[in-house]
Computed example of a mutant assay.
Amino acid sequence: MSPPKIKICGLTSREALDATIAARADYCGFVFYPPSPRNLAPETARALAAHAGARIGKVGLFVDPEDALLAAGIEAGSLDAVQLHGGETPARAAEVRARFGLPVWKAIAVSSAADIGRAEEYREAADLILFDARTPKGALPGGMGLKFDWSLLAGYAGAMPWGLAGGLAPGNVGEAIRATGAPLVDTSTGVESAPGEKDPGRIAAFCAAVRAR
């Protein structure tokens, strides 16, 4: 069985991007959400995207975005996919996919088995489901380093491609993959030395741990 795909989210510097590419991650994540410490200004996203070129897939994270923000982020980041990380409905996810012509990843906040079941609602509206930990009310919707009960995904066989996020780090990602069978893993906080500051060593360790599971 091939190892899971890897996404390193919330990159803000060329150093972090270089480390992500060197570690052979499949995707880098650019955040377009102003409250986040990982939010990118358009000019920064444009510079990082140009530096990355076609060496890695580029995914833009948005939270309940208006079309103008989506358009600006897609252009600046030369995005290959759009990740919707807020309360977007299936209808909105389908609208974004149709309007911008890019694959849509929909994050679902998980705290119970019922949340896993919500993935089915997006079957015709999104291209990939990302199961992430539910964060406290009023907090950021992701990037908090929280994880959920991975046993909720044991034996999961949904109809759509999916990935696992939430509290993943070099020390636990192997366990997470064994527990869930996740075909894609996504980390942000778990490879940081401080909020928004990626650690090249941790990025390398995370990718190595995924492949050594």
Rank of each mutant, 00 (worst) to 15 (best):
A50M: 13
A50R: 15
H51M: 06
H51L: 13
H51A: 15
A52L: 08
A52M: 12
G53Q: 07
G53Y: 08
G53S: 06
A54M: 13
A54R: 15
A54D: 15
A54W: 12
R55M: 04
R55I: 09
I56K: 03
I56Y: 10
I56W: 07
I56F: 11
I56E: 12
G57R: 15
G57P: 10
G57N: 12
V59L: 09
V59W: 05
V59Q: 03
G60E: 03
G60M: 05
L61C: 00
L61D: 01
F62W: 07
F62N: 04
V63P: 07
V63I: 09
D64N: 15
D64R: 13
P65H: 04
P65R: 06
P65V: 05
E66I: 03
E66P: 04
D67Q: 09
D67G: 05
D67I: 04
A68P: 03
A68E: 14
A68M: 08
A68V: 13
L69D: 14
L69I: 13
L69F: 12
A71R: 12
A71V: 02
A71L: 12
A71H: 01
A72R: 14
A72L: 14
A72P: 01
A72V: 12
G73W: 12
I74F: 03
I74H: 04
I74Y: 05
I74K: 02
I74P: 01
E75R: 15
E75V: 09
E75Y: 13
E75N: 11
E75C: 09
A76D: 00
A76W: 01
A76I: 00
G77P: 00
G77K: 06
G77T: 09
G77S: 14
S78T: 00
S78H: 12
S78Y: 03
S78C: 14
L79Q: 04
L79R: 03
L79V: 01
D80G: 12
A81G: 03
A81P: 01
A81L: 11
V82Y: 02
V82L: 14
V82P: 11
Q83L: 11
L84H: 10
L84C: 12
L84N: 09
L84G: 08
H85L: 07
H85N: 11
H85C: 13
G86W: 14
G86T: 09
G86R: 09
G86D: 05
G87P: 05
G87H: 14
E88W: 05
E88Q: 13
E88L: 07
E88K: 08
E88S: 07
E88P: 05
T89Q: 01
P90F: 07
P90W: 01
P90V: 04
P90E: 02
P90N: 01
A91R: 14
A91E: 15
A91D: 12
A91N: 08
A91Q: 14
A93S: 14
A94Q: 05
E95V: 02
E95T: 13
V96K: 02
V96E: 05
R97I: 02
R97E: 00
R97M: 02
R97C: 04
A98K: 15
R99N: 08
R99Y: 02
F100H: 09
F100R: 06
G101P: 08
G101V: 07
G101F: 13
G101Q: 06
G101D: 01
L102R: 10
P103F: 06
V104F: 04
V104C: 10
V104T: 11
V104N: 09
V104S: 06
W105D: 01
W105A: 04
